[in-house]
Design a binder for these strands. Structure first.
Length: 781
DNA sequence: TCTGCGTCTTTTTTT
DNA sequence: AAGACGCAGA
């Protein structure tokens, strides 16, 4: 115990050795937050207050989780296996895998990332004839995610606005599709896990008994659902006292409201868990005085803070330096030449960071650094698991794992090209939606030219399904790349060599995964325990932990990243770039007081990343989406005390009278107006497509039946139909279908469970119905 | 069915 | 500026 607390300051020690009940730690930037968290766990274990299996620790990134474990193992010798440490998403995934049955999911459920999710939404909308011009899939996606983050299913959302009503209907259809495909999007992981716990008393009590100590990092970034999940797990209102929740957060660093984070959770936590007084960590061990003064001054412009003032006993240090260049190219040149000077003086590149508000800004710095031969690393660019070739290979593996994963199916059914074109796929999708089965299963019912093509694809997937149980994961990855034809495809592509390398890298990733994350059986106490197969683990790993490791690869390099990505990191020398009004703060935030305050917190985060030296840079003119704009300096610059700041260029806030005429300064926003009004014209006025129906609850126009084209096929079908003499369904019989109404059976094919009815409905369309499914909905007239 | 070309949109941030 | 998407022609 001595060793754990001995080098802590008073407040830190107070937090670490607090009584084993719930507590809130308000930890300012650079105040030793991670240290306190890990020390707390070490303390609990060492004092025998807790057994490792009783500890649940939630972080926001996988990186943070890993770091926590690593530091912990440095402090005390323990086997971290028994603890649950991870992100909300990772832990929920784990919970759902263990209890998939109770959660209503197949053990092999797929995890959809953002682009998969968008794809499903587009598919759902198309299948139901919803105009994607009028209802933008992106907005639908946001709507759905927002609902889920508030814990609401489609049936629980109400709105009087017609647009919302439409969204709600799409949400409902989307829910149904996900359920059928056995897939979860990110928010679904949380919502499902929440529902699992709240509905299943046994499971809930089990985990409530188990996790007596819950530690939460970055508590200010939790959303409504996550907080509810925590309350459930802690047994608030059920258990007296509830489990000890040790929440660490900083309201001033809340920068994820845009994705549903709710700072209000901190206040609620204090009330609901009856926290007396939060423990404040205000001594900053990171930054020099000037930097800290600037950060404090800036953030004091925000209202509704919990209140906290960072101090340091380090000296004032260098003044912050500001520089305004003529344009963005010059800005990049200024930043990089300054970096060059530091490197020449012996500073190592990895201690230098370039921060920007949005990803698009990185390009100029990249080219300039390349030109100078300075090594650099871009965080959060295209992530390894987001690369097309990797996603393709993963899709094959997902299908091997879970053939009803339609997203994966659609991604690779014709990659490499197998002559399965849009039309065949459309037919297949129609058949699948009409009958409510997966695309994979539907393949066998397709006749005609496409049948052989589908059979070839099915053969590949079937082979993979067998292979996955017969070889170790890395070998299976390799086999997949081979058998799918992806390797061959990229080998034939003259530009494919990098993709081949990446696919090779995927095999090593699988190897690394096995080594590091070795998935083991849980729970010695006999509750529902299930082994996650290595493949299932790897597949979800690819969705959930996409590429955070790659950042560590390029060791000694200048670090480039968005301000968001920089949270939790620190560097000797930091450049905050693009400090222009409408850029940072971003123009989409400027008319919303709350959003503007979040921008300010973002700036606060950026400033507090710096240990020794801080540069603030901006440009008068900047290329944006192909156009050039002039701009005002960021209003945040005026909130930084003059005595901490030194302008290397002319100070744009002095001598305003001699500044350029208003026109050139204001033209950024002027042009913007033009831009948005012309945008409006095109989307409101000149819509070329008639935006007629919103919901075609009946038959989608494009659904024209599958087999009507070829006469010869009809012939063979007629022969088949004769074999079905024991079935009540025969050509020529009139029927009525619950959903599609009256119709006549044109033909049948197949027999028994596989029997398909080809029905012409009065409403116009010809549909192919699987007899065993449609049977319940059909009456013979 | 596939390919290439032209048009349109986009990004603020991410588990 | 770059990527997604749709369309037309091979």
């Amino acid at each position: 115990m001595q060793s754990i607390t001995e080098s802590l300051n008073k407040q830190q020690a107070q937090a670490v050795t607090a009584e084993p009940k719930s507590a809130l730690i308000l930890a300012g930037a650079g105040s030793g937050k991670t240290r306190v968290l890990t020390s707390r766990i070490a303390y609990l274990l060492q004092q025998n207050m807790a057994h490792p299996s009783e500890i649940l620790a939630v972080t926001f990134t996988n990186k943070a989780a890993k770091e926590m474990l690593a530091r912990l193992q440095n402090m005390i010798p323990i086997n971290p296996r028994a603890m649950w440490v991870g992100t909300f998403h990772g832990l929920c995934n784990r919970l759902l895998r263990l209890h998939h049955q109770e959660a209503g999911l197949p053990s092999t459920f797929a995890i959809l990332d953002m682009s998969d999710q968008l794809g499903v939404i587009k598919r759902v909308m198309k299948a139901n004839g919803i105009d994607t011009e009028e209802f933008k899939p992106r907005e639908v996606q946001n709507f759905i995610n927002r609902c889920k983050e508030e814990g609401k299913r489609a049936s629980e959302v109400y709105s009087k606005f017609s647009k919302d009503k439409a969204y709600i209907q799409i949400y409902a259809m989307y829910e149904a599709v996900l359920q059928r495909e056995g897939a979860c999007d990110f928010a679904e992981l949380l919502l499902r896990a929440y529902e699992l716990l709240s509905r299943n008393e046994m499971i809930r009590h089990h985990y409530q008994e188990r996790f007596r100590f819950i530690l939460v990092d970055e508590f200010q970034d939790t959303n409504v659902l996550q907080y509810e999940w925590l309350k459930l797990l802690a047994g608030l209102g059920e258990k007296n006292p509830p489990n000890a929740v040790f929440a660490v957060g900083d309201d001033d660093q809340s920068i994820y409201a845009f994705r549903g984070a709710n700072v209000g959770n901190m206040m609620s936590f204090v009330q609901e868990f009856r926290i007396g007084e939060p423990i404040r960590l205000e001594q900053n061990y990171r930054s020099q005085g000037n930097i800290l003064d600037a950060a404090n001054a800036l953030i004091s412009n925000n209202s509704e803070r919990m209140g906290k003032n960072l101090w340091t006993d380090a000296g004032k240090g260098e003044k912050i330096r500001a520089n305004r260049s003529d344009n963005d190219f010059d800005e990049a040149r200024f930043v990089c030449s300054t970096i060059q000077e530091y490197i020449d003086k012996g500073v190592s590149p990895e201690d230098i960071a370039i921060l920007y508000r949005s990803n698009a800004q990185s390009r100029l710095f990249e080219t300039e650094l390349t030109r100078r031969g300075i090594p650099f690393m871009v965080y959060g660019g295209l992530r390894f698991f987001d690369r097309a070739e990797i996603k393709n290979a993963m899709a094959y593996m997902r299908l091997a794992e879970n053939p009803s994963d339609d997203s994966a199916f659609l991604r690779v059914v014709n990659v490499p090209a197998r002559g399965i074109g849009a039309k065949s796929i459309e037919n297949l999708v129609d058949f699948a939606t009409t009958n409510g089965i997966s695309l994979f299963e539907s393949m066998q019912y397709i006749r005609g030219a496409a049948a052989n093509k589908f059979a070839a694809f099915k053969e590949i997937i079937d082979t993979l399904r067998v292979a996955k149980d017969e070889m170790p994961l890395p070998a299976f990855v390799d086999f997949t790349v081979e058998k799918s034809g992806l390797r061959n495809m990229y080998e034939l592509d003259p530009n494919g060599s990098e993709r081949i390398e990446n696919l090779q890298e995927l095999t090593s990733a699988a190897q690394g995964f096995i080594k590091e994350e070795a998935i083991d059986t849980e729970n010695s106490d006999g509750t529902a325990v299930e082994n996650l197969s290595a493949l299932a683990g790897f597949v979800s790993h690819a969705s959930l932990e996409a590429g955070e490791n790659q950042a560590q690869v390029g060791q000694d390099a200048v670090q480039l990243m968005t301000v968001h990505a920089s949270k939790g990191l620190e560097f000797d020398i930091v450049f905050i770039t693009g400090l222009e009004e409408d850029m940072f703060p971003h123009f989409r935030s400027k008319n919303d007081k709350k959003a503007l305050q979040e921008e300010r917190r973002l700036m606060y985060v950026a400033i507090t990343r710096a240990r020794k030296e801080l540069y603030l840079t901006l440009a008068e003119e900047r290329m944006l989406q192909g156009r050039s704009f002039s701009s005002y300096p960021s209003s945040f610059l005026t909130e930084i005390p003059g005595e901490t700041l030194k302008w290397l260029s002319r100070n744009p806030f002095e001598s305003r009278y001699e500044a350029e005429d208003e026109d050139s300064w204001g033209s950024r926003s002027g042009s913007n107006k033009n831009y948005s009004s012309s945008y409006r014209n095109s989307s409101c006025g000149g819509s070329t497509k008639p935006s007629g129906h919103r919901f075609a609850s009946n038959v989608p126009e494009w659904a024209k039946g599958i087999i009507e084209t070829k006469k010869e096929k009809l012939q063979t079908q007629k022969i088949r139909a004769k074999q079905n003499s024991d079935s009540p369904y025969k050509a020529g019989i009139n029927i009525n279908h619950e959903k599609f109404g009256p119709g006549v059976i044109l033909d049948t094919q197949g027999a028994g469970d596989d029997m398909v009815l080809i029905v012409k409905f009065k409403t116009g369309g010809i549909k192919n119905l699987l007899a065993r499914i449609a049977g319940k909905k059909i009456t013979i007239l």
